[in-house]
Simulated assay, not measured.
Amino acid sequence: MGKMEEGIEYLKNQKFEDAAKAFTEAIDEDPGNPVGYINFGNLLLHLQDFERAKNFFEKAIELDENAMTAYYGLGNMYFEQEQFGKAQQNFEAALQKGLENGDVYFMLGMTLVQQDKSRFALPYLQRAAELNTEDVDAQFQYGLALAQSQQIDLAMDQMKEVLKLETEHSDAHYNLGVAHLYYADTDKALHHFDEALRIQPDHVLAGNGKEKVLEMLKQNNNENE
């Protein structure tokens, strides 16, 4: 096992000092290889040492302008600092350089969501959901983007997919409750709000949704008397 592989194993096991040592040795052995700098940048990003992480990612790009995972690392760094415009630019660059995985599509979608551009985020979140079929967050965020784009039926189908992966997903139940309320199906709406509250008793939005349904039912009963 080479120093690079050792460093990655140490990083996976959260042995950060050992990882730093291994990556440093890997860079010393092959200073022209951008991968060493990218791995060290990822370590620094994990430690939230953003300025030094930026330097390592930029060094990797200096060595290889097509180092797609360096752009992805920069995108994550800017996202962590809530600099969403710069994060978007780097995630887009990673895609343009050929990075094709669900994570980069997901993160690009989320940067757009954070900039109130849910409509533009939708195709990226859809692609992330297609590539990461077992990723609950990817499936949920795609469903949320569908709902925000007023594609209610598709959003409902997607939230049901989320519940297949994680039956105790309170936010998926809440969003299904909202969708059923949109169609004035109070019984199903109440069921999902109750489920959300069972899973997460302090779910404020579900609590508000339930109150709204109960008020509607009370009003309907009064009108029928």
Rank of each mutant, 00 (worst) to 15 (best):
F84D: 04
F106H: 09
Y78V: 06
F140C: 12
L176T: 11
D194R: 11
D116Q: 11
M68R: 02
A145C: 11
E80P: 02
G75R: 01
G143N: 05
R119P: 04
Q148M: 15
E62W: 01
Y183K: 08
A60E: 04
H203A: 15
V178D: 09
N55P: 02
F40D: 02
G75L: 01
I61L: 12
M68Q: 01
D171M: 08
Q151N: 13
H192F: 15
E134T: 15
H173V: 15
N90F: 00
D30E: 12
A145F: 03
H191I: 12
Q96L: 10
K86A: 10
K117A: 11
A70L: 00
K54Y: 00
Y142H: 13
Y10L: 10
H191Y: 15
L112K: 01
L181G: 06
D171P: 04
L47M: 14
A189F: 08
L45I: 02
M4F: 10
V104F: 01
E82Q: 14
L217R: 08
L217N: 14
F50T: 10
E134K: 11
Q151G: 10
A155F: 08
P123W: 02
N220I: 11
L165A: 14
H180G: 06
L43R: 00
N222C: 09
N224R: 11
H203R: 08
I199V: 12
A22M: 01
A196D: 05
H46I: 07
Q88A: 08
R198V: 06
P34L: 03
L108A: 06
F140E: 06
T186N: 15
E211V: 09
L214G: 04
H173D: 12
Y183C: 01
E62V: 05
F84N: 04
D187A: 15
E168V: 09
M1K: 10
N13I: 09
V204G: 05
D171Y: 08
D157P: 03
G207K: 04
F120K: 05
N208R: 12
P123Q: 06
R119N: 12
G109P: 03
Q114V: 07
A196F: 05
A94M: 02
E168N: 15
N76L: 11
A138E: 03
Q89L: 07
E65A: 06
L181K: 01
P201Y: 05
E9D: 12
D18K: 06
N42Y: 12
E5C: 07
I27M: 02
N13W: 07
Q148W: 05
E82T: 14
E80T: 04
E168W: 04
V178G: 08
V136A: 10
F50I: 07
N42S: 05
N66H: 01
A196R: 01
Q81D: 05
D153P: 05
Q126F: 12
D116I: 07
D30K: 00
N101C: 12
E6M: 13
F193A: 04
N13M: 09
A128C: 10
D135T: 09
E25L: 11
M68H: 01
K59R: 15
A94K: 01
H180A: 07
L11Y: 05
E195M: 11
L131W: 03
H169I: 03
M68Y: 00
E5V: 09
L125I: 03
E161C: 09
H173F: 13
Q81N: 08
Q14H: 09
V204Q: 14
A67I: 00
L181A: 13
N175R: 15
P31Y: 10
G7Q: 02
Q200A: 14
Q219E: 14
K160L: 13
K164I: 14
A87V: 09
D18L: 14
